[in-house]
C-alpha cells in the first residue's frame, strides 16, 4: 500500500488531494494575477506569506497530532493563555525571558493534561480538546489575567525584530515558519518518535502490540503541539505589538484544521507530512489575500471559502473514493 502510494506521489501530484489543492492554488494565483493588478507585486506576495505564516505554523503543530489520529482544538486557547500570562508577568515587573519560561511551563502543563486525558482516560481527542479549550481559557481569564488587550513589552529588541525585521529581504516571521516546518519535517521523517506517530496513526492497536509506547507518545505529541502554539503566540505578539485574549473566541482553530485537511492529511491519521501543510497554507492564504484585495465582506468571504473547501473535499472523494468495505469504523 505504502509502496504504491510512493510511486503514485512520484508520478506527480495530480492524483492526490494535495495535488488537486496545489493545482487549485496555482489556478487561483493565476486568476488573481490577471484580474487584480496589485496582486503579483512582490510586496503583496510577501504580505500574503506573512499573513498565512501564523495559520501555517498552527497547522504544522496541529498536523503532529492529526497524523497520530488525534486532534487538538485547544491550540488557540493554550496560545492565548500562555502568551498573555507571560506578558502580564513582564508588565508586573518580571524580566521577559523569565516570564516566557514560566509561560512555557504553563502551556506544557496544559499539553500534559490534555495528553494524559487522551492517553489514559481514553476519551476521544476531539471531545477532550473541545472540552479542555474552555477549561484552559477559564483558568487563564479570571485567575491569571483579567484584561482583554495586552501590549507587548517595549524594551525587548528581539521581539520587535521577530515581528517586523527581515533577514536577506525575507521577513523573519516567514523565516520562523520555514524553520518550524523544517524542524517538524525532520522530526516526522527521521526520528524514531516521528515514525512512531505515523505507525500509531495508521493502526493504534497494531502499534501497541508491536511494543510502541503508545501513551507516552500521545502525551508528548500534545506537549509539542502546545509548545508550537506558544511559539505562534509569540509571533502574533511580536507582529501585532500586542495580543488580545478574545482571539480564543474566534474560529481560528477550525481554519487551522481546514488547512491541515485541505493539504491532504486525513483525520484518520497515518498520512501526510509537512509538504501537505504548506500546500494547504498556500491555498488558504492565496484565497484570503485575493478576497481581501477584492474587498469582499467577511460573510461573503466565509461563503466563498466554504464553497471552495467543499469543492476540494468533493474532488478528493471523487479521486480517492471510499466505500463500505474500506472505510474505517468510527472514522468521522
Amino acid at each position: 500500500m505504502s509502496e504504491k502510494e510512493k510511486t503514485k506521489g512520484g508520478k506527480g501530484l495530480s492524483f492526490s488531494q494535495e495535488g488537486i489543492v496545489f493545482l487549485l492554488t496555482l489556478a487561483l494565483f493565476v486568476a488573481f494575477s490577471i484580474i487584480l493588478p496589485n496582486f503579483l507585486t512582490s510586496g503583496n506576495v510577501i504580505a500574503l506569506m506573512r499573513s498565512v505564516s501564523i495559520l501555517g505554523m498552527l497547522a504544522l503543530g496541529m498536523s503532529l497530532v492529526v497524523i497520530g489520529r488525534g486532534v487538538d482544538l485547544t491550540m488557540v486557547a493554550t496560545l492565548v493563555v500562555g502568551v498573555v500570562w507571560a506578558v502580564k508577568l513582564t508588565n508586573d515587573g518580571m524580566p521577559f525571558g523569565e516570564a516566557l519560561f514560566y509561560g512555557g511551563l504553563l502551556v506544557s502543563a496544559f499539553g500534559l493534561i490534555v495528553g494524559l486525558i487522551v492517553a489514559f482516560a481514553e476519551i476521544p481527542p476531539i471531545f477532550t480538546t473541545l472540552a479542555m479549550a474552555p477549561v484552559i481559557f477559564g483558568i487563564g481569564n479570571p485567575f491569571l489575567f483579567k484584561q482583554d488587550t495586552h501590549n507587548a513589552p517595549r524594551n525587548v529588541e528581539w521581539l520587535g525584530d521577530l515581528g517586523f525585521g527581515a533577514t536577506l529581504g525575507i521577513p523573519n516571521t516567514i523565516l520562523v515558519f520555514g524553520l518550524v516546518a523544517l524542524v517538524i519535517h525532520l522530526i516526522l521523517r527521521y526520528t524514531r518518535f516521528g515514525r512512531s506517530i505515523y505507525a500509531m496513526g495508521d493502526n493504534p492497536l497494531a502499534a501497541r502490540m508491536t511494543g510502541l509506547p503508545l501513551r507516552p507518545i500521545i502525551v508528548s505529541q500534545y506537549i509539542m503541539t502546545a509548545l508550537v502554539a506558544y511559539l505562534v503566540g509569540l509571533v502574533i505578539l511580536a507582529s501585532n505589538s500586542g495580543i488580545n485574549s478574545r482571539l480564543a473566541y474566534t474560529t481560528l482553530v477550525y481554519d487551522v484544521l481546514l488547512v491541515v485537511v485541505l493539504g491532504g492529511i486525513g483525520l484518520s491519521g497515518g498520512r501526510g507530512g509537512v509538504r501537505n501543510v504548506i500546500v494547504g497554507t498556500l491555498f488558504v492564504g492565496t484565497l484570503l489575500s485575493g478576497m481581501t484585495i477584492l474587498n469582499l465582506s467577511l460573510t461573503a468571504q466565509n461563503l466563498i471559502k466554504s464553497v471552495v473547501m467543499m469543492l476540494a473535499l468533493i474532488a478528493d472523494t471523487l479521486v480517492n473514493p471510499r466505500d463500505e468495505q474500506t472505510s474505517q469504523q468510527g472514522d468521522i
Partner: peptide
C-alpha cells in the same frame, strides 16, 4: 462518502 466532521464543519460556515 465525504467525511462527516469536515463536511458539516464547512456547511456550518456556509
Amino acid at each position: 462518502r465525504l467525511r462527516a466532521f469536515l463536511t458539516t464543519l464547512v456547511t456550518l460556515v456556509m
